[in-house]
Amino acid sequence: MQRAGLGALRTAILAYRRWASGRGPLRRVGCTFAHGESCSAYGLRMAETSPSLGLALARIRGRLHRCRGASVYRVHRGARRDALAWGCDHDEPHTLEDELCAARERPSTRAAVLAVSLEVARYRGRWALAAELAEVLARAETTLDATLDDAAPPAPLLVRRVSAASLDDRPRATLAWLAPALALELGVLALALPVLALAWWWLAWPGPLGLPLALSFGFMILARLLTRARARLELRDRLRRQIDALRFETAGSPAPHRRRRPSEAAPRPGSGQVSGVTKSPVISAGHG
């Protein structure tokens, strides 16, 4: 039974990769790990290596949460310099390494996520946390598990580019933020249309049970769409708060509430920093 379930999961992921990924309403849905092991590739590996269907589904669901939580955003602010925003996984990354190991992430993926957390800590002026993350990253790079990864270098995380104007409360900006969530759900629904048609034909026979079951299914779809929309709006509000809290007053002048970097660790002129955002290969090679 477990083997049949894992086989069905593997078939579904292969069908998604073949006919849905990057096509139709999903063509603008980007994966944070697209430059390395994408979420669909991770899901396929979990379907092939996990001992049970429940464990595989739990790991895939965790990866989908990390796809948002580990994201990094470059916010364009017109004439002012770009700002950096980040997902919730980089707020308190003390347990991030253990979570990634428990999820059987590849060492290259773990190193990429930790490298982004390190850049975020430096950007926020949290130098003690940055030093701690640097030690963890050094250990991760020297203890690559050859059974999981052939010592591949850390693949850069996808940088999602956001306009500061899209973070306001205008109705048009709100619809722009809701569009990816709605497109994803509509794409999944389009894949399920044949199954839904067959189910509707089958439910037409039971008579009185057909309408209540169909209405229940419709309410489930509506609740899912509302949940995705709420998550997108919460993310937009989170990015807006980050930009407001870490705004630079003038070029090269940090905001008053930010701590100055120690003089011995100050960045050298021309070192590749733009408004506190390091041009590191782990966060600047992607296109959102």
Rank of each mutant, 00 (worst) to 15 (best):
A266G: 01
I243H: 02
E249F: 00
F248Q: 05
R268H: 08
R259G: 10
M220R: 13
F248R: 08
F219K: 10
M220A: 13
A251C: 07
R232E: 06
R224C: 06
G218N: 03
R241E: 07
R224I: 02
R268V: 06
T250Q: 15
R258M: 14
P256G: 06
L235Y: 04
A265R: 15
R247M: 07
H257V: 12
S263W: 15
L225Q: 14
H257P: 09
A265D: 13
L225G: 10
G218R: 05
I221R: 14
A223N: 12
A223R: 15
L225C: 14
A265W: 15
D237K: 05
L222N: 07
S253C: 09
R259Q: 14
G252W: 01
R268D: 04
E249Y: 03
Q242G: 01
P254T: 11
Q242M: 01
T250C: 09
E234M: 05
F219Y: 13
D237C: 03
R230P: 00
F219W: 15
A251S: 13
P262Q: 03
A251F: 04
L246D: 05
H257R: 15
R261P: 01
R236M: 01
R240V: 00
L225A: 15
P256W: 12
Q242W: 03
G252F: 01
R228A: 10
A223H: 12
R238T: 00
F219C: 10
A229G: 05
T227K: 11
R228F: 06
F219T: 13
E234W: 04
F248M: 09
R240Y: 03
A266W: 11
T227D: 14
I243W: 01
S253Q: 14
T250S: 14
A251I: 09
S263Q: 15
S263N: 10
E249G: 07
M220D: 08
P267V: 07
D237P: 00
L226V: 05
R258L: 15
D237H: 08
T227W: 07
L246M: 10
I221T: 13
L225W: 12
A223G: 11
P262N: 01
D244L: 07
A265F: 13
R259T: 12
P269D: 04
R261Q: 12
L246G: 02
R260T: 10
G218C: 04
F219Q: 13
R247C: 06
A229M: 05
R260G: 09
H257W: 15
P256M: 08
G270P: 01
Q242L: 00
R228N: 11
S253F: 03
T250L: 14
R258Q: 14
R258N: 03
R232S: 11
L239F: 01
G270E: 02
P267F: 12
G218V: 00
A223P: 00
L226E: 09
E264H: 10
